[in-house]
Design a protein around this nucleic acid. Sequence first.
RNA 1: GGUCGCAUAGCUCAGUUGGUUAGAGCGCCUGCCUCACAUGCAGGAGGCCCCUGGUUCAAGUCCAGGUGCGACCACCA
Length: 862
Amino acid sequence: MPAIDPATLPKHFDAPEAEARWDRVWEEWGVHAWDPARSRDETFVVDTPPPTVSGSLHVGHVFSYTHTDVIVRYRRMRGRNIYYPMGWDDNGVPTERRVQNYFHVRCDPTLPPRGADLAVPTDAERKGPPRLVARADFIELCLSLTRGDEEAFKTLWRRLGLSVDWKEEYSTIDRRCRHLAQLSFRDLFDKGHVYSVEAPFMWDIDFHMAVSQAEVEDRPARGAFHDVAFGVEGGGEFTIATTRPELLPACVGVTAHPDDQRYRPLFGKRAVTPLFHVPIPIFPSEAVDPEKGTGILMVCTFGDATDVAWWRERKLALRQVLGRDGRLVPVAFGSPGWESEDVVAATRSYVELAGKTVHGARQRVVELLREAGALRAEPRPIEHAVKFYEKGDRPLEFITTRQWFVRLLDKKDALLAKGEEIRWHPDFMRLRYRNWTENLGFDWCISRQRYFGVPFPVWYPLDAEGRPDHARPIVAEAAALPVDAMVDVPPGYAPEQRDRPNGFTGESDIFDTWFTSSLTPQISSGWLLDPARHRKLFPADVRPQAHDIIRTWAFYTIAKAMLHEDAIPWRNVVVSGWILDPDRKKMSKSKGNVVTPTHLLDQYTADGVRYWAAGARLGTDTAFDDKVFKVGKRLVTKIFNAGKYVLLQGGTPGPITAELDRAFAYRLRGLVEQVTASFEEFDYAHALQDTESFFWADFTDTFLELVKGRARQGDGSATAALRLGLGVLLRLFAPVLPYITEEVWSWAFAEETGARSIHRAPWPGAADFAGVAAPADPASFDAAVACLAAVNKGKSEASVSGGRVVTRLVAAANPATLDRLRPVAADVMSAARVEGHELRSDAVLADGAFALVEIVFAPVEA
RNA sequence: GGUCGCAUAGCUCAGUUGGUUAGAGCGCCUGCCUCACAUGCAGGAGGCCCCUGGUUCAAGUCCAGGUGCGACCACCA
């Protein structure tokens, strides 16, 4: 193949132009397309994380998605048929919240649909109360807003060079995903893995919905111990310390540690609450810490999870004062369940509290206690942990509601066993999964009292009084799915019977967003909708994800695969770290330290940004450091220039025969083996590091300089070795730097090899080195480099230009080193511009070392 | 409080199964426009490998204990 015409080469690498051009060409060539005809064995399936599109674009996205793409591009070059889809996680609370703010609306499911109004409200309108919109209209607003978000993500992904097969694009709210999620529910229902129950459970008073354990986080919060005096029937009193005095009317018991001498005499007696004068049992419990507070505490329905446990164990009364909106509901003291020894006083006190928020009621009840003389001390401020919904702003409450659950608590051992079948990268991440699974405290609550999500395919029959019979849910048959229970009618009923006595009512809840997201492997494979495809794509090969969602996404996906098919969803989990800001704090929108990715791409090019991302080992958090981007950009430039130089050599490639060239090929082959081994272990960071260091130190700064003389004379061995080096290095870089490598590849290698895209070119291996004889001594390369360095040092110390001609050089080395140098000495002298040299043997010198005895420079030309 | 990870040059990080004098890039200093590249090239300075103890002929590397940083989980009386 002739050398390319210099005139056809661009002077500089125009990255934005190249990024746009190759994105188009790759699409046209189908470089990233999955071939459904090829077998499972040849296929590499990625269970791509569907990003939450209602969040902002973040460098963290760029970081972890690049890791996946690098892994994918390597496998593609290994000849695997890549299935690499992209989904958008658009359903769920973050979208609803964004829509509420963006359009200044709230959903009122009782309203009839009127058609969504997509107008953005004016500032004046924003000052007024939010517009109420029907459920269907609210959903339409959600869809319209997320569509734009998805476009923004897609633009970013394409620019970044993610080699996604865009034919396999989906969103978790689309019809297919709704269908699969409902099929999942139907399957779990048939297998007895789901149930609904009315019970106290964690509830967010702002979002008006139940939340699962996985979405709960503890946050430190300010609180105060309130010392409240309780009476004892038959005389006496004691003081409890509570942080939640507003729950005093909901108090249903008092407990202390069984060995606590202070309170032992009280067990079995009844206490009487202040203000409300309600008699309640006093019982012992091992769970009480005698050191905490006053060592005796009140049990309320419900202050926390232990209250729920005591309430169940002791079969205590239920006095729920907190409503779903977080305000105290009206109750009638004296009525059944609300017995009081002084109904008048109790009522007088409670009237002061009813309708107030937790916060307001707390302030008022403290005043009332103080007035009644029941407050033994002023509140003592403390800092304690409080449970919050991860996206919520106010503490969770335990409120009795009806919810659907997936039974998981009785399957911990099986879930743990499945986790052990999966390979985790890095391996210690499996402990996160194990830890979470072992400590699971609740079944999975999958019902959410929200609107934008996949509806439950469930109706309930109504009795003659119009009350739903929750014990006999009507679950849509698999063949009838997908359905919207609020629109569609269950079999055997007529539309007019909706919400009528002896008719039916639709389940208005939607699934927890993870209920759908946990099916991403099945969404890819089609599962029950396409069994043949399912066999080709399930289980996936690799699940890339972040470590903070091991307890949600990874855990639920493993659970679903197990419950549905007793399978594992993927063979490997690859866990990326976090991006930290330069102060080593986690980047987050709320902290205002987020760097947006688009300007990084503008400034450093896609390859430069990818270089930065690929430098981070799996599972390791990385500080944001713009110096690394600069290095990446420089590497791109260097590859461009080196490629240009190598391909401009006029010689015809011949057999690689020169000792230096063979020694170089030998080293290069070692690099290929090393880099390949790293990629096989998903260790792209070391693969890149080794390739980069070889490229710079062994290729451009040394080999390329050493063979320039011969290359200029058209030497076939030098020309071939340079091309071998460039062709191999380009491919080793290609997974990380797809644009520049494709660009340089296209100048000559595409035609020469028949692989028009480097990303479909075969990964370097033995075939590239066939016909290259082993060097007489691989260390001849080191000898050449060391000798050249010695001359360079002489020039540097004399402050002369590297191009300065040396008329006389006397260098010394030990005999073995000299032997290694001789076959390559001509290359060294040519590169160092030495016109006359003498090599002396000096046995004292260390092996491999060269000493400069004499160096004489040619006079500077006028 | 439980679990896990990290700690090496001013900064960001490599350092394979223990094995000569601990490496790279950035930054810094000194030179050099040398015919691919000044987004470059050459040369150089710069390290109680967190601390203490142990195993070993030999420890940055293995073990134990500590310290610091980070993450995940738990902690509502």
